[in-house]
Design a protein around this nucleic acid. Sequence first.
DNA 1: CGCTTACTTGAGTCTGGTCAAACGGGGTGG
DNA 2: CCACCCCGTTTGACCAGACTCAAGTAAGCG
Lengths: 253, 253
Amino acid sequence: MMNWQNGARSARRYSCDDCPLRPLEPFRPFAEEELEFVSTFKSGELNVDKGATVLVEGSHSPHLYTVLSGWGFRYKLLSDGRRQILNYVMPGDLIGLQAGLMEEMQHSVEALSPMLLCVFERDRLGTLFERHPGLAFDITWLASREEQMLDENLLSVGRRSAVERAAYLVAFLQSRAAGVGLVGARRKEIPLTQQHVADTLGLSLVHTNKTIRKLVLRGLLRWGGGGFEVIDLDGLLSLSRWEGLPKGPRPLV
Amino acid sequence: MMNWQNGARSARRYSCDDCPLRPLEPFRPFAEEELEFVSTFKSGELNVDKGATVLVEGSHSPHLYTVLSGWGFRYKLLSDGRRQILNYVMPGDLIGLQAGLMEEMQHSVEALSPMLLCVFERDRLGTLFERHPGLAFDITWLASREEQMLDENLLSVGRRSAVERAAYLVAFLQSRAAGVGLVGARRKEIPLTQQHVADTLGLSLVHTNKTIRKLVLRGLLRWGGGGFEVIDLDGLLSLSRWEGLPKGPRPLV
DNA sequence: CGCTTACTTGAGTCTGGTCAAACGGGGTGG
DNA sequence: CCACCCCGTTTGACCAGACTCAAGTAAGCG
């Protein structure tokens, strides 16, 4: 059913100096010294295939990762197989922090596309906190941002109607993806199946299909080509009563 | 409708040396030096009445708090008034970290009982990170724990049935409260209204009532006296298919 | 060309929502 | 002391949004 750990540790292609993410608009600049430490903190790169499981619930991975490219999602399963997608991961996101701090992961992460991950050793996290308070602050900041996104997701699943929820999700993914260049002039589609949407919104597959269909009929988005494309972001925002993503620069570790 | 900021800054009653929480079983012991810093980090205590709003969405509070006693909850509102309760706060929890790190709070916090809060200045958070990496690590740890709880809540609201959800919530609150002595031999009730439960589970008030009633009939809990009392925790756990809270010591800041 | 995977659509059912009314205890003012 | 009121809880009747089952279509691939 599910592909297992399916990644190849590769020779590093990017030094942190010319990290492809760093120049992107949403990220805060880095102090020279910090950049130097991050270079040593990084222990390699990992390529994972589409569909591969990056981290597994219950495991205690020795690594943390920063996403360099590609898409993925975090999820939890109930013992009978029901799945809830908790959030999506995109370039610049830190994954596996739980495993770095506590005993074990309480969720899994799977790739939605081929992904390139920057690998860090969990053992060095202590050193990072001791020697680079600025980076430690950034990590905490990222954890707090993840919490904000979860709060909004929970509001959505708990209190928005099916159409509102779908509109929110689509607007949310579009906003995040645009910020890190995953969608833009070239590629406009966001690569999801309706099953993913259903498992994110807490709806059945069939009802999700009918709901998405309504949004398509209203001209708010297009579905096809292995994903969707947003047409009217403002329409989706107002339909979902969502304020949009907080703006302002964010850290990258 | 809603009580506004309604707290009195009081003379401090507790020095950190004899913080009433520290000796409790679930908390990690503190290094001497750290204790000393926390003492200076603390700038006072705040009493809030039951029903008072501790932090408001959209504000940029100059303070963070650690809960010393009492109950509260974090929530978000949709523009038309629908409310989603995100999580509950209990002694030992850090609140307002978002305001400490980013521009503004994205959720509100309200007291479910009189609460006593330990007040910290957000401006000193930078110093804390620079001078006390151990404490910085603890704060990150707490943020990560909050994320774990949110993940489980999201799984619950998204994928569990009404009865499973209610069972999960009740078991969750009982487990957390027992850990910090909020329920025990003396006081057994957890002070909530069914409206709170409904807004946590993403259900209507009426259906929540009928659902709770089922749990009561099965002999899993009692309702009354302004809250509920858990009777059969194991029954609730297995009904909800929940693994229970991760165990092990946790930090206190 | 035959599989498989993903998306669609329709029919019938059921969980959970809405509306409405009533109950019960605690507090308050007459 | 009692009548009244308010809040939180309880119940019933009815409705609707979402689920399940089932079947069919379309696109991609070996």
